[in-house]
Simulated assay, not measured.
Amino acid sequence: MSSNKASTMRQQRLGVELRRLRERAGLSSTEAAKRLGGTPAQISNIEAGRYAVSAERVRTLAANYSCADQAYVDALAGMTGSRLRGWWEEYREILPAGLVDVAELEHAATALRVAVMLQMPGLLQTAEYARATFRENVPRLPAYEVEHRVSFRIRRQAVLYGDHPTPLTVVVHEAALRMGFGGAETSRAQLGYLAEMSERDNISVVVIPFGEVSFPVSGHPIVYASGPVSRLDTVQLDTEYGCDFLDAEAQLEKYRTVLDRMESRALKPGESRDLIRRVAEDV
């Protein structure tokens, strides 16, 4: 078990889940350490994600905590190992930590659900559209940071390609289609790209049109990342102050319900694509 001060989001989540298992078992860190043959400090470090822990040790801890959910234990064991140096780590020193963690979350997700009201979803943005939105940041970002964020956003989109592309479902409000970031040319190209991407087998884009008022409103984009088992799902929210990550059972249930209701109020994929193209013609 090696020290890992700069733990990844994945390792931090593993630690959180192990802590939850211990607490459900009604054990203190001291009692858990005795069963493991270690010290309370080791348990604390594991639960804080500061140590890279082995799959065997995770299974031992799960057995000590009387966890009988084998699929869940297998998923936890799959989250172990030394630090994963994904491409996003190149940005760790130049972008806010929350943004970098989003890429790691998307990389590990088995499926993604997104809802946006005022901007296009980041995974389906063109470079020019992304650049236009970042230029509106308050306080204003320096030009070099805008370009870092644009390149980062485009690289995140790799999860939608390859031999095993991640399934993506997007709910977008008509207001986002008509916001006009970057001017007419940029908006038209963005809408065309959105319609084109919606035709991919792994991507579904549905639009809530103006006039549909009966749905749960969220002023911030919602990303629901599915894990290998539902207990390991994560919700990510963009806020004015950065990225929030939620994984409590009640929070996951809430946002599953929100997304289900939003999708139920949206047009069908074909109708949504037609609306996107009509809006592009009007720009």
Score class of each variant (00 low, 15 high):
residue 153 R to E: 03
residue 38 G to S: 14
residue 172 V to A: 07
residue 115 A to G: 04
residue 261 R to W: 00
residue 111 A to P: 03
residue 148 H to K: 12
residue 139 P to I: 08
residue 126 T to I: 07
residue 196 E to D: 14
residue 196 E to F: 10
residue 52 A to K: 04
residue 121 P to Q: 04
residue 48 A to G: 05
residue 9 M to T: 09
residue 254 K to Q: 15
residue 187 S to C: 09
residue 117 M to T: 13
residue 7 S to L: 12
residue 187 S to V: 06
residue 101 D to Q: 14
residue 29 S to L: 08
residue 132 A to Y: 04
residue 23 E to P: 07
residue 194 L to I: 07
residue 77 A to F: 05
residue 172 V to S: 00
residue 266 A to E: 01
residue 193 Y to S: 12
residue 248 A to F: 04
residue 133 T to A: 09
residue 148 H to D: 15
residue 110 T to K: 11
residue 122 G to Y: 02
residue 247 D to W: 00
residue 256 R to M: 03
residue 71 A to G: 13
residue 250 A to S: 13
residue 225 A to V: 03
residue 214 S to E: 14
residue 40 P to I: 09
residue 244 D to K: 07
residue 109 A to S: 12
residue 15 G to I: 02
residue 101 D to T: 08
residue 104 E to K: 11
residue 178 R to W: 10
residue 276 I to L: 07
residue 218 S to D: 03
residue 190 Q to G: 06
residue 53 V to T: 12
residue 198 S to I: 06
residue 83 R to T: 11
residue 11 Q to K: 15
residue 71 A to C: 05
residue 250 A to P: 02
residue 11 Q to A: 15
residue 66 S to A: 15
residue 49 G to K: 01
residue 165 P to K: 08
residue 86 G to M: 08
residue 117 M to I: 06
residue 110 T to L: 07
residue 54 S to R: 12
residue 168 L to H: 01
residue 22 R to N: 09
residue 268 K to I: 09
residue 40 P to C: 11
residue 71 A to S: 13
residue 58 V to R: 03
residue 109 A to P: 04
residue 6 A to K: 13
residue 43 I to Q: 00
residue 225 A to E: 02
residue 185 E to C: 11
residue 152 F to C: 05
residue 226 S to V: 02
residue 49 G to C: 07
residue 225 A to K: 03
residue 278 R to N: 11
residue 50 R to P: 05
residue 83 R to Q: 11
residue 171 V to A: 06
residue 272 S to D: 05
residue 163 D to K: 15
residue 15 G to D: 04
residue 230 S to N: 12
residue 94 I to Y: 10
residue 243 C to L: 14
residue 240 E to A: 15
residue 157 Q to S: 09
residue 209 P to L: 11
residue 149 R to T: 05
residue 96 P to G: 10
residue 272 S to F: 04
